[in-house]
């Protein structure tokens, strides 16, 4: 079966900066494909090229058999786009916004009406459809932002960080929505810098950093990249960048990341480094309150491949 999305050797330069550098991936029909990377990795730029908003410097994009350079209209018709920003009209009601975006995809009359009703239902906001979007909470706006992208039941849905800056409840609602849409047959390209979301949702994942895809595969394939490694999580206060450097220098440490009041240390030999780790920290004046060893996750993969944290 041929892929519904084919991206080959995609590159985008902004003057000196290469925002997307020779990126290739393909998405099979019915998949949820994740693009995971920190801020500035080039996710939005990639999505913008796939949705024909910006022109690639080089490379090809084919969606549903339509080449972006030759048939952008047909390509766009097959796509639903959920932009990273909440792209709605604040002084229009949710229903008015949805009616507008539905019309922009060519829906009219009864088809439009029922699509709007379905989308409001999906967003869980049918009872507040007549309120202006400006009155909504961030999470509710995000839900309408998504609803506006699926009115025309696209073959492929592009979602660019759809959960940024919202409460956990809305976030769960959105993740379940993506699962539901996918179960109903929609192919999804999902970008995020939250590895838990990507782990939870995606069949296949590409990890992106500095415009380059540094690893790609299923969750299990990616975990194999850090196969045999452990994550030593240290709860600790008073960590400075100097301390971090000292920890990084410890033999057997593959990567270190600092998350609020904790350090996550990637290593193949958790047993042997534990002592040195704690003594190094204590000697630098940091106070260790607990130490635990966990399974590696996508965060660890990213840490291993780039030496830095996804969350930076």
């Amino acid at each position: 079966m041929s892929s519904i999305v084919e991206v080959r050797a995609l590159t985008k330069r902004f003057d000196e900066l290469v925002a997307v550098n020779d990126v290739s991936f393909s998405i099979e029909e019915g998949e949820v494909f994740g693009l995971l990377g920190p801020n500035g990795a080039g996710k939005t730029t990639t999505i913008s090229m796939v949705s024909c908003l910006i022109e690639p410097t080089s490379g090809t994009i084919v969606v549903n058999g339509h080449d972006s350079a030759r048939e952008p209209g047909a390509l766009k018709a097959a796509l639903g786009v959920v932009p990273q920003e909440i792209a709605l009209y604040p002084t229009l009601t949710a229903a008015e916004n949805l009616r507008f975006w539905g019309s922009m995809y060519g829906l009219r009359g009864d088809a439009l009406k029922s699509a709007v009703a379905d989308a409001l239902e999906l967003a869980g906001l049918a009872d507040r459809a007549k309120e202006r979007v400006e009155k909504y909470s961030g999470g509710m706006k995000r839900r309408i932002n998504i609803a506006a992208g699926i009115l025309h039941k696209p073959r492929v849905l592009l979602m660019d960080e759809p959960t940024v800056g919202i409460d956990p409840q809305s976030r769960n609602h959105i993740l379940e929505t993506v699962k539901d849409l996918n179960a109903a047959g929609m192919t999804v390209l999902y970008t995020s810098h939250y590895m838990e979301e990507v782990e939870y949702l995606c069949d296949r994942i590409a990890i992106m950093d500095h415009g380059v895809i540094i690893a790609e595969g299923t969750l299990n394939e990616l975990r194999d990249v850090v196969g045999g490694m452990d994550v030593v999580a240290v709860k600790v206060a008073g960590v400075t960048s100097e301390v971090l450097e000292r920890v990084r220098a410890i033999e057997g440490v593959e990567g270190v990341e600092s998350v609020e009041d904790a350090l996550e240390v990637l290593t193949r030999s958790s047993g042997s480094i534990m002592g040195r780790l704690v003594s190094t920290l204590e000697s630098e004046g940091a106070h260790v309150t607990s130490v635990s060893v966990t399974e590696p996750n996508l965060e660890s993969v990213f840490l291993h491949l780039t030496g830095k944290s996804l969350r930076d």
């Binding site: 024909c52 908003l53 047909a74 766009k76 975006w101 995809y105 060519g106």
Partner: peptide, 14 residues
Amino acid sequence: REQTLARMMSTPSS
């Protein structure tokens, strides 16, 4: 600025 223009341009309208 609010990206609704970009969103319109991602629809099939020219």
